[in-house]
Design a protein around this nucleic acid. Structure first.
Lengths: 318, 318
DNA sequence: CATCTTATGCTCACGGAGAGTATAAATGGC
DNA sequence: GCCATTTATACTCTCCGTGAGCATAAGATG
C-alpha cells in the first residue's frame, strides 16, 4: 500500500489481479454435517468471480443455485486472503480468494454435476466429540503436540506453546471449546502435523488423521465450521439445514452434529420452545422407534419479530 | 462464476481487477471514539494492495505503522465487497475493496500526514445514546421512517417495513440494540434519508443529521463500529485503545464511548476485576476531582491464559 | 466545615442454565 | 399379552450471573 493515505479511486491503482470465490456449502443429513467438494473430495468448489453480477453475494448465490437447483438459504462471507505466501512463486498472477459459507440441504442438489457431499469430520476427525473425546486425540495428537512444545528454543516459549495447545485442545483439565476449530487447525499446521504444512516445509507430517485438501481449502473449511458453530448459538440458522418438518430430536441431532458435542435433551427442548422458534404441524413422525414425536416447523415469523432472534442453545459450557 | 465447479487454479482465470484496502482505524480519546480520516473527513484511508507483502494483514499493518509510527494493536478483517453496484459505470476497471478494523491510540500518530482523527458520532449522531435517546431521533428520524414505511405498496409490506424500523431503532417500546449500527445505516439508506443514497437515486436526502462520506465508506465505518461494539463484549480489545495505565472509570468511559450507552458503574468494576483483566500499578491517578482512583494496567497474561478470554461487560440488555 | 465528586464495598432479588427425576407412549421379541 | 427398550415430554431444584440499589470512604473546593 502507499505510504501516504490516498483518496479512494476507481481508476486502476495497483497491479492487476484476479478474484476467486471459494464456497463452504454445508448440509446436514442423518446427523452428519457434510460439505460440497470437488476433485474427489480434495477441494472446495471455487471459481473466478464474474463482474457481471451486482455483488459478490449475488454471484455466489447464482453459482450455487446453478449447482444445486434451488435457492441457497443462508450465505455469509467468511474471509478474504491473498494467495501469495502459501503458493510460493512470486511470478504467478496474484489472486484474491473470497470465501463464503452457505447453508443448504443435500437432497436438493441437482443431477449431473461433479460435486459431492462429503462428511466434514473426515477432514477434522478431532473435532467430533459426540461420542466422547476421540481416542487418537490423547494417543496421537497430544504426544505430538507435547513434543512440538518441547522443541521450542527457550523454556518460556516451551511453556507458551504448551499453554496454547492445552487451551485449544482442552488438555490439562481444561474444557473443550468447540469453536476453536481454526485455531486448532493452525496449531497443528504450525506444529507440522498435517500434510498441507509438510508440502511447504518438506517434513513428514502424515501423522494426524484427517484428509488433506488442495491449497488453503482445509483452512477455509475450518473457518467455515468455526463460524457456523459460533453462529448457531445466537442465530436460528440451523433451520436452514433442516427439512420443512422435523422432530425436536432431529433438530437436536443436527445441532449436535454441527457442534460436535452432545446437549442436554430436556434443556434443549425448553430453550427451543420458550423462544417460540418452532410450531407444531399437528402431524406426528412416522417410522420411528419409541414414542412417536410431534413434527414441528420453523416459525419464519421470528426472523421479522426479533432483531437478534437469539437462538440460545445449551452449548455454552459444561 | 462458472456454472460447473472447477479445480482451483493459480492461472489467471477471470478478468483482471485491482484490490484496495480500506481501513477503519479507531482510537478513543477523552471518551470520544475517533476514526482516522482523510480528505477533510470525507473518506477513510485507503490504497491499493501491494502484493509485495506476505498477506493482507501484513500489508495493512505495514501501511498503518508507516502512518502512525507505532505498531497497530489489533487488526481484524471486516468485509470484502466488489465495487460495481454502487459505483455504477460498468466500464471502469473493477476493483475489490477489502476493509479492515484496526485499534490504536491517537497520541501515537506521527507528524506530517494528511490524516486526521475525527469523532465517529459525527457520521452517526443517532448512535450516541450516552446522554439518553438523541432528541432528533424521535423528532426527525422516526417520522421520516414512518412515512417511508407508509409509502410501501401493500399493507403487509408497510407493516414489515415498520417492524424493521421499530426493531432496529428501538421504537414501539423495544429496547435499543447498540450493535445494529449497520442495519440502521442500511435502513436509512434504503429509506433514502441519507445523502449517499441520494446520489444514486437523485432524491433529496439531507434530512437526517450526520456527515456523509465518499463512496461506501460510511457503510464500511458502520460495519466497523458494529463489529467493535460486538467484540468488546467478549474479547478484551478495549485495552488496545487505552493508555498503559488507566483508572477503572476511564476504562468504563471508553467502553461507554464505543457502545454509545452508559453502564452500571459498580457492576462494571465487579466484572472487570473478577475476570482478572487488570492489575493495580500501585500508583494513584493525579489531577482528579473527587476521591483519587487507583491506576490499573491490563494483564496481558490473560490473553495466554484463556482461550476466549471473555470480557463480559454489563452491556447485555436493559 | 459543608458540599461536591468520585471510588469502593456490600447486599438483595430475579431469572437463566445445568442437571436430575418421573412419567407417557410407542415398538419388537418372547 | 408381557416385558424390555426407546423416545417423548413434564417438572423440579439448585446455583450463579447480573441488574440494581444502598452505604461509606476519600479526596477537592469554597
Amino acid at each position: 500500500m502507499a505510504r501516504t493515505p490516498q483518496k479512494p479511486s476507481t481508476a486502476p491503482s495497483g497491479n492487476a489481479i484476479t478474484a476467486d470465490l471459494v464456497a463452504v456449502l454445508v448440509a446436514v443429513t442423518d446427523g452428519t454435517p457434510k460439505i460440497m467438494t470437488i476433485a474427489g473430495g480434495s477441494a472446495l468448489p471455487s471459481g473466478p468471480f464474474e463482474f457481471s453480477h451486482r455483488s459478490l453475494q449475488t454471484a455466489l448465490r447464482a453459482w450455487v443455485e446453478a449447482q444445486t437447483g434451488h435457492p441457497l438459504g443462508y450465505v455469509e462471507q467468511l474471509y478474504t486472503f491473498a494467495d501469495r505466501g502459501r503458493s510460493g512463486d512470486a511470478r504467478t498472477p496474484h489472486s484474491v480468494s473470497i470465501s463464503y459459507l452457505g447453508l443448504t440441504r443435500e437432497d436438493q442438489v441437482g443431477e449431473g454435476f461433479e460435486a459431492h457431499w462429503t462428511g466434514w469430520y473426515g477432514y477434522f476427525p478431532w473435532e467430533d466429540h459426540r461420542a466422547g473425546v476421540p481416542p487418537f486425540l490423547a494417543k496421537v495428537i497430544t504426544p505430538k503436540l507435547k513434543a512440538w512444545a518441547k522443541s521450542a528454543p527457550s523454556p518460556t516459549l516451551q511453556r507458551e506453546r504448551w499453554q496454547r495447545c492445552a487451551i485449544n485442545f482442552g488438555l490439562d483439565d481444561r474444557a473443550w471449546n468447540e469453536e476453536l476449530v481454526l485455531q486448532r487447525y493452525e496449531l497443528l499446521y504450525e506444529a507440522g502435523l498435517i500434510p498441507e504444512a509438510g508440502r511447504e516445509h518438506g517434513r513428514d507430517t502424515a501423522v494426524v488423521p484427517g484428509k488433506p485438501m488442495t491449497a488453503d481449502h482445509r483452512r477455509i473449511l475450518a473457518t467455515g465450521i468455526a463460524r457456523l458453530r459460533a453462529k448457531i448459538k445466537y442465530r436460528p440458522v440451523v433451520f436452514e439445514l433442516m427439512p420443512a418438518e422435523f422432530t425436536l430430536l432431529q433438530l437436536q441431532r443436527s445441532v449436535e452434529a454441527l457442534a460436535g458435542r452432545l446437549v442436554h435433551k430436556q434443556n434443549f427442548r425448553r430453550l427451543i420452545e420458550q423462544q417460540e422458534l418452532v410450531e407444531e404441524t399437528g402431524a406426528m413422525a412416522a417410522d420411528t422407534v419409541g414414542r412417536p414425536a410431534k413434527l414441528f416447523r420453523f416459525r419464519h415469523a421470528v426472523l421479522a419479530e426479533r432483531a437478534v432472534a437469539g437462538t440460545k442453545l445449551p452449548l455454552t459450557r459444561t
